[in-house]
Each structure stands twice: as C-alpha cells, then as structure tokens.
C-alpha cells in the first residue's frame, strides 16, 4: 500500500503556525516558573495535612514591624498595574506615596478596570494620651494598618501584610512606607 504524502501547503502552514505559537508558549512557561521562585527569608512552612487535600501553600514571616503572608509563593511582575482601593482616613494615598518613596516597580492606576491587581485594607491611628506623654515622654501616635493584594481577574488573594507601630515617628506616612517596603519583596524586578 502506498502512503499518501501530505500536500505541501499543509506542511508549510503547520511550520508557520509552529513559529507563531512557540514564543507564546515559552513566555507562559517562563511566567509559571517565576511564580514558583524561592521563598522570602525567615519563613516557616506550615505542615500540610494530606487528608484535607491540596490547600494553598501559605508562607508567613514576621519582621520587627509586622507580619506578612504570601500564598503559593506568588510574585507580582514588575510594572504590573495596581489599583489601590479607598481606605479609611485616606490611607490609600499614603500607600501610593510609600510605593513611590520605596521605589517599588509597580504602576498605580486610578481605575480598577485597568488594573491587574488590587490593594485593599484598613488603617487606624491613635494619638498619644496624657499618660503616654507624662510617663513615657512620647507624643507620637500608634499606627495600625493591614493590607491585602488580590488578583483582579481571579479574585485570589496572593499577599497580606499587617503593621503595628506603637510610637510612629511619622504617623500614617510610616505605616504606608512599611506596607510599600514589604510589597517590594514580592515584586519581580
């Protein structure tokens, strides 16, 4: 039995399609590889229970300022578009300024529909009372803030950070910069 040879046009078309799709496949593989990069320092991996199934890998780390948690070692690509949702007391403005001061390579946008990621959170300030001024001699405020970063398309939360400063030298500015500094750790530069 003679085998029929495929027509030349089909062969040419297949070759050209292969050239067209190869760079896209290579890029998607590269993106998957960068999302599984090494964990941040001082992390403790929680032991996963095989009976419960595949739970997301939550890595937590403590610093002198607060606590951060990354899910599945997620990373944000540099210059990704980020939307910062309004927060109590206008704290989102301090986070934006913090991202600039700490030179975090992200593009902040004011429109959520144009963003890849969304940062949301809460913050609270407590000014020094008379007892703190009298006994400790400090008039700086207590600052607390907590933020999370979620993928806008999937809704998955990939990063969380909380900060608490009992004697904040620069109030909300310090808390905003602390958040920005820790966001920089998960941005791929």
């Amino acid at each position: 039995m003679f085998r029929k040879q495929p027509p030349k046009s089909l062969v040419l078309a297949a070759l050209t399609l292969g050239i067209a799709w190869y760079p896209l496949v290579a890029k998607s593989q590269e993106n998957n590889a960068t999302q599984n990069q090494s964990q941040p320092d001082n992390t403790t991996k929680p032991t996963s229970d095989p009976v419960k199934g595949s739970a997301p890998d939550l890595n937590q780390a403590s610093s002198d300022e607060g606590k951060l948690a990354t899910v599945n070692n997620a990373k944000i690509p540099s210059y990704a578009r980020v939307y910062i949702a309004p927060m109590v007391g206008g704290f989102e403005n301090y986070v934006i300024a913090g991202l600039r001061n700490k030179k975090v390579p992200l593009t902040v946008v004011m429109d959520r529909t144009k963003a890849d990621y969304e940062i949301s959170g809460v913050s609270e300030s407590e000014k020094a009372g008379w007892a703190k001024m009298l006994f400790i001699g400090a008039q700086n405020s207590n600052e607390e803030a907590s933020i999370k970063i979620a993928d806008v398309k999937t809704g998955a939360v990939i990063f969380g950070y909380s900060v608490h400063k009992t004697n904040s030298a620069r109030g909300k500015q310090s808390a905003g910069e602390a958040c920005a500094k820790h966001i920089k750790q998960i941005v791929i530069e």
Binding site: N93, Y94, I96, A97, G98, L99, R100, N101, T107, V108, V109, M110, D111, K114, R170, K172, Q173, G176
Partner: peptide
Amino acid sequence: GEVVWAYS
C-alpha cells in the same frame, strides 16, 4: 489613569 507622582 496612571499615578505619575505622589508625596506624603
């Protein structure tokens, strides 16, 4: 819609 500058 991009933020070009910010300050605190």
